[in-house]
């Protein structure tokens, strides 16, 4: 009997819809931020896969976490710290790791260093521990209006950049030799994409946390590419998958006592599995 009660209790902590209406109002900002980040993550993710940068996303998010933790400790703007960390990592990876083999070892070196720094800053930080945990595993109630403005501003900038460079970036990503011969500034575009990626990662860290950014920037795109090779449909599907994962994750996590990340990651993983099955039948 006690085992049953205990298990019911655990489920009550994982899924609970008590006072749902009142809670929903509280997370309005998070829902907006989630939709925007889903849009950004879904689009950036297609290029991350085309350019084979999934591991770089993870490395950048750890440094972004370190930057955010430092900002928290110093009482500075957390989004600003997160952006600074992410851009530093993106710049290092972009300039030093041009060849894929160099890049991966470089990221392998950077990542634990970033994570270690972040842990140090958090350990020194005297404030609430919920803030600390949130940077790693995500948080939904922490999106106040100034932070939402930051996230929206960053996202709009990323979207405008992508709209401008989309076609030459796709060309340079799939066939850099011919693109260069056709006059596409391949190296400059690569730098622009690292900037865009750094910003997208820093923004995503605010919602899903540093450890799980890939669920937003890689998984939805990977799922989309399993079911279509159309250059128009792939980014659209990727965005739909990312938005569904984040918004669904927030709505499911709302009444529960555990962080948001398991919901987002599970949703996006299930979408990926379904797409793999469909893709396997198609091929």
């Amino acid at each position: 009997m006690t085992a049953l009660a205990q298990s019911a209790d655990v489920w009550g902590r994982v899924l609970s819809f008590d006072h749902y209406g009142e809670l929903l109002v509280l997370v309005r900002n998070s829902l907006i931020a989630g939709a925007v980040l889903g849009l950004v993550g879904g689009l950036v993710g297609t290029f991350v896969l085309m350019r084979d940068l999934a591991f770089a996303v993870h490395g950048i998010s750890e440094l972004s976490f370190a930057g955010a933790a430092a900002a928290l400790l110093l009482g500075a703007n957390v989004v600003g710290g997160s952006v600074a960390g992410a851009l530093t990592a993106a710049a290092v990876i972009g300039t030093m790791g041009v060849a894929a083999r160099d890049r991966n070892s470089l990221i392998g070196v950077l990542m634990p260093f970033g994570l270690g720094l972040g842990v140090l800053f958090l350990a020194l930080y005297p404030g609430r521990s919920a803030n600390k945990f949130g940077l790693l595993t995500g948080q939904i109630v922490a999106i106040d209006t100034p932070r939402l403005s930051w996230l929206t501003g960053i996202s709009v900038f990323v979207l405008v950049c992508l709209a401008v460079v989309w076609r030459p970036l796709a060309f340079a990503s799939v066939d850099p030799d011919v693109a260069a011969a056709r006059g596409v500034p391949v190296r400059a575009l690569s730098a622009v994409f690292m900037l865009v990626l750094g910003l997208a990662v820093a923004a995503s860290v605010q919602i899903v946390g540093a450890l799980l950014v890939l669920a937003l920037i890689c998984t939805p795109a990977a799922a989309a590419l399993r079911v279509t090779a159309s250059p128009v449909l792939a980014p659209i599907l990727s965005v739909v998958f990312a938005v569904v994962s984040v918004l669904g994750g927030i709505l499911l996590a709302l009444g529960a006592a555990v962080p948001i990340s398991p919901y987002v990651t599970t949703l996006s993983f299930v979408i990926y599995l379904v797409c793999r099955l469909i893709g396997a039948r198609r091929a």
Binding site: R167, F171, V184
Partner: peptide, 9 residues
């Protein structure tokens, strides 16, 4: 891409 892959926007 051979026609307009190098064009921005």
């Amino acid at each position: 891409f051979g026609l307009d892959g190098h064009r921005f926007g």
